[in-house]
Design a protein around this nucleic acid. Structure first.
Length: 419
RNA sequence: GCCAAUGUGGCGGAGUGGCUACGCGGCUGACUGCAGAUCAGCUACAACCCGGUUCGAAUCCGGGCAUUGGCUCCA
């Protein structure tokens, strides 16, 4: 398939290091609060990417980190009077719960920062030994002047930029912390440089190196991580042994916006996933997300989600009778997915499949997208439907209508065909 | 200031150098025990602006503008 990489700035054919095995690493959340719709977008997109690649017959290992040691967690735990681990475990569980309720199940392994401290320390140690990191009284820092490749992803040269932060202990204002020295309560570990905790960027490279090595195929995350986070990751990993590129395919999802502004925890304009799922089910939400291309901005509005819900209802209403394969629409679907995961086009193909009654393709592709395009049926429901059909045939409309009324009240969509 | 993403019809949203995706909404008709749904058709004659290349550009090139974001934590 073709995939856009931020590194090259173009769509290019996906050529993985092993023809039939794909390694995918996606930056997970910092677990200090409930996940919001912006997270839903990013993780639904990568869920679909992984499912699609798997569907094409390749083996994929999808690894995601969980940032469970960080300033925000420390502060929040302090505010709420709970331990850091209690807070982190709670919101990690909430995150996993929300991901499940969105039908996200393509991740093979969630790796916590705090369970990879030895790997982190080891990596920092090697960076110090290589001479690209140095130790001060406040921590271990990566020396950005020592890394030539900086700025590849973002187009920004870190050594030439102006920083708002002034920390006189650092050689260069933009040098970033690999290890922060100090006592941070529960999450403080011994290290060769003294007690402390990891910097922000190091966990990803320590984790990805452990499971994938210094080079792997796809690294994903939100657009907001390109700088400085992903640049820092490249600097760290490629400084170990000079292997380049660390990753060839950097896939970044566009922002989810609210009234034109990026949804974020810091802005406080976020809608949690569970709030949305109170009104709409995961099929509607996924349909809404996939209705726009993953790199475009996506404006979250009630109207937009409701619109997606109507479109999905329509597909289900049309897809009632199985009338065989629609090869053209099947090809259109895979062509769209092959083309930089063009889900809006893929959904157009889904509509065509529904219209032509290719139910087996709808089921199969629905699994790739994580959306159920067919009406759910159960034994109980079909018995009720049969009874109603008989009653209507006998023109006993009062009883038939009463059953329909009750079914609708119970949240079941009932649509009769003309007699 | 520097860097980046985005800019298409009432709305959402694709592709493609010329042959007008698709959906939602709206309109008309058909069908229908009733709701609803479905079916057929119509609707919008759209491309941020200014230049250029071309027989032809929304699509390629140049220059602007606007919105959002990154440069501090962020999916």
């Amino acid at each position: 398939m073709d995939l856009y990489s931020t590194l090259s700035g173009t769509v290019e054919p996906l050529v993985t290091r092993h023809p039939d095995r794909v390694s995918l690493f996606v930056c997970g959340p910092t677990v200090y609060d409930y996940p919001h719709l912006g997270h839903a977008r990013t993780y639904v997109v990568f869920d679909v990417l992984a499912k699609y690649i798997r569907w094409t017959g390749k083996e994929i290992f999808y690894l995601q980190n969980i940032t469970d040691v960080d300033d925000k967690i420390i502060n929040r735990a302090h505010e709420e009077g709970v331990s850091q681990s209690m807070l982190a475990r709670k919101f990690e569980a909430e995150y996993i719960r929300d991901m499940r309720s969105l039908g996200i199940d393509a991740v093979n392994y969630y790796a916590r920062a705090t369970t990879h401290i030895p790997e982190i320390i080891n990596q920092v140690d090697r960076l110090v030994a290589r001479g690209v990191a140095y130790v001060t009284g406040s921590g271990v820092y990566f020396n950005v002047d020592m890394f030539g490749g900086n700025g590849e992803l973002s187009g920004q040269d870190a050594t030439k930029r102006v920083s708002l932060v002034t920390d006189t202990s650092k050689h260069h204002p933009l040098d970033f912390a690999l290890w922060k020295l100090g006592e941070f309560g529960e999450y403080t570990w011994d290290s060769p440089w003294g007690r402390g905790r990891p910097g922000w960027h190091i966990e990803d490279t320590a984790i990805s190196e452990k499971y994938f090595g210094q080079q792997y195929d796809i690294h994903g995350g939100g657009l907001d991580l390109i700088f400085p986070h992903h640049e820092a990751e490249i600097a760290q990993m490629e400084s170990l042994e000079g292997k380049h590129p660390m990753v060839r395919y950097w896939v970044h999802t566009g922002f989810l916006t609210v009234k034109g502004e990026k949804m974020s925890k810091s802005l406080g304009n976020f809608i949690t996933i569970r709030d949305v799922l109170r009104t709409w089910n995961k099929d509607v939400l996924r349909y809404f997300i996939l209705l726009s291309h993953y790199r475009s901005p996506l404006e979250a509005t009630k109207e937009g989600i409701a619109n997606a819900g109507r479109a999905l209802d329509h597909i289900r209403a049309v897809a009632k009778k199985d009338t065989g394969e629609n090869q053209n629409a099947r090809k259109a679907f895979t062509d769209a997915m092959e083309s930089d995961l063009n889900t809006p086009m893929a959904l157009a193909a889904i509509q065509a499949l529904a219209a032509s009654g290719d139910l087996s393709a709808l089921k199969e592709f629905g699994e790739v997208l994580g959306i159920n395009f067919l009406h759910e049926t159960s034994a109980t429901l079909s018995v009720l439907q049969d009874i109603r059909a008989e009653l209507r045939a006998k023109k006993q409309f009062d009883v038939a209508d009463m059953i329909r009324k009750r079914m609708i009240a119970a949240g079941i969509t009932v649509t009769d065909l003309p007699l």
